[in-house]
């Protein structure tokens, strides 16, 4: 019996070999290189933890991780909060009073930015936000708020918030769709009973919607937080980490360290730190998820 069972392992062979070659070996190489001084040519020189010690004193490194927290707000916290309210409103209000068709059309509108390549979303927005002749500034001028015009992506005090705004727009559809699907499996009798008891929309939201889709909330928060820590394309296209490093994030910082400064050892150290943080969050997220599903 055992023999027969384990011969299934043969089906796993191509997958495991491919993973070794494309993920595991490169990952170990990256970790190894982070302990060396290497410019990408010649042989790496062993330097122990020197790169990591340098990171501790590198203000650029700390700034990039601080900006990551802003990205987590923009890509995980805000979209989850907004997504919950929107999903509940579309499902429990619009769907009921105006029909599921309208709810589905609205949901599609919110989801649309999610299918856009992030590089293209960046182009669309940098064109809209352009200081001269950009649509946003033109609109402000047209409605008499000309003094509110800004160099949205070029002002060091503003750029980070502008990037955050674009990312909320990009990300919102994902939590919304997941939450609406989650609400679909909630027993409608719960809502009917609550409504009969005179519970208003807000109380139904707090006491039925939130507890019922808690597993989905954890999944979304985990996925979005990880996506926020990895954000690269949007920053590359919108600001290139600028102006003056105001929107630099770890992934972009490691990219420039690898390919522009060619300090490969140092870049590997940055990406290793990023990996450790992401894996820790992933394990934490999976734990929370299991607990929520067990309840």
């Amino acid at each position: 019996m055992r023999v027969r069972r384990d011969s299934y392992a043969l089906f796993l062979l191509p997958g495991v070999l491919a993973f070794l070659a494309v993920v595991i070996v490169p990952f170990l190489m990256n970790t190894g290189v982070s302990l060396t001084d290497w410019q990408g040519v010649g042989s790496p020189k062993w330097s122990g933890l020197a790169n990591y010690r340098e990171l501790l004193h590198d203000s650029e490194f700390w700034a990039s991780f601080r900006h990551s927290l802003f990205m987590v707000v923009a890509m995980a916290v805000l979209p989850t909060a907004l997504g919950l309210v929107l999903a509940a409103a579309l499902f429990d209000y619009i769907g009921k009073h105006f029909g599921t068709r309208i709810a589905a059309v609205l949901r599609a509108c919110f989801y649309l930015p999610q299918v856009l390549p992030v590089a293209v979303a960046g182009i669309v927005w940098s064109w809209i936000l352009a200081p001269d002749n950009g649509s946003l500034n033109a609109l402000l001028k047209a409605v008499g708020l000309g003094s509110w015009q800004q160099d949205w992506l070029g002002d060091p005090d503003l750029a980070l918030y502008t990037v955050m705004g674009v990312l909320v727009w990009v990300q919102l559809g994902f939590p919304l769709v997941v939450f609406m699907a989650g609400l679909g499996r909630v027993d409608p009798q719960l809502y009917e009973a609550a409504e009969l008891d005179g519970a208003g929309w807000w109380r139904r939201f707090r006491h039925i919607t939130l507890p019922q889709i808690r597993p989905e909330v954890y999944v979304v928060l985990t996925w979005c937080t990880i996506a926020a820590l990895k954000v690269f394309g949007a920053v590359y296209v919108l600001t290139k980490g600028g102006p003056g490093g105001a929107t630099d994030v770890p992934s972009y910082f490691s990219f420039t360290t690898f390919f522009e400064k060619t300090q490969v050892g140092y870049g590997s150290a940055i990406s290793t730190v990023l990996t450790v943080i992401i894996l820790a969050l992933a394990v934490l997220g999976l734990k929370l998820q299991n607990r929520a599903e067990a309840v």
Binding site: I24, K230, F255, G267, S271, T275, L279
Partner: peptide, 14 residues
């Protein structure tokens, strides 16, 4: 699952 979550930044140079 964990391999799926690895950031590409940690694979890109190798």
């Amino acid at each position: 699952v964990l391999a799926n979550m690895l950031p590409q930044e940690a694979l890109v140079y190798p």
